[in-house]
């Protein structure tokens, strides 16, 4: 890999880091996490494709690493989906809301 390319990738990474720090100063609400994750993903892609030479590597290796991300997504996806579903039942939430049916009769003797 020619030196200019190494340096170009490095400076692109630095600029993106600056960008992500800069954007974090604005309150963008929910969009913020997605924006910073997108920037991180672009950076990660640069590292993988150029520094790790995946662009020139055998396709099998690319399949291997990208395949693993699918399994990570499965793992996170199902677990989060479930956590979202039972959130209402968590005791500290339901105590706060007090609208939770049934929770009322369960006060502890005090």
């Amino acid at each position: 890999m020619p030196i200019w390319m190494l340096l170009a990738v490095f400076f692109a990474l630095l600029i993106l880091t600056g960008l992500t720090v800069y954007q974090s100063q604005f309150d963008l609400g929910n969009a913020e996490i997605w924006l910073s994750l997108t920037i991180a993903t672009v950076k990660a892609a640069l590292v993988i494709l150029f520094f790790m030479h995946l662009l020139w590597d055998k396709p099998l290796n690319a399949i291997v690493i990208l395949g693993s991300l699918i399994f990570v997504a499965l793992f996170l996806g199902f677990t989060l989906m479930d956590a979202e579903g039972y959130r209402e039942n968590l005791i500290y939430k339901s105590t706060v809301k007090a609208s939770q049916p049934g929770a009322k009769g369960d006060e502890i003797d005090n």
């Binding site: 399994f71 499965l74 199902f78 989906m81 479930d82 979202e84 579903g85 039972y86 039942n89």
Partner: peptide, 18 residues
């Protein structure tokens, strides 16, 4: 085999959809 681990937890109070 990676998609079915939840069946060990059917009674644990998982969300119905899951």
């Amino acid at each position: 085999g990676f998609l079915v681990w939840g069946h060990h937890m059917f009674t644990s109070g998982m969300a119905d959809v899951t």
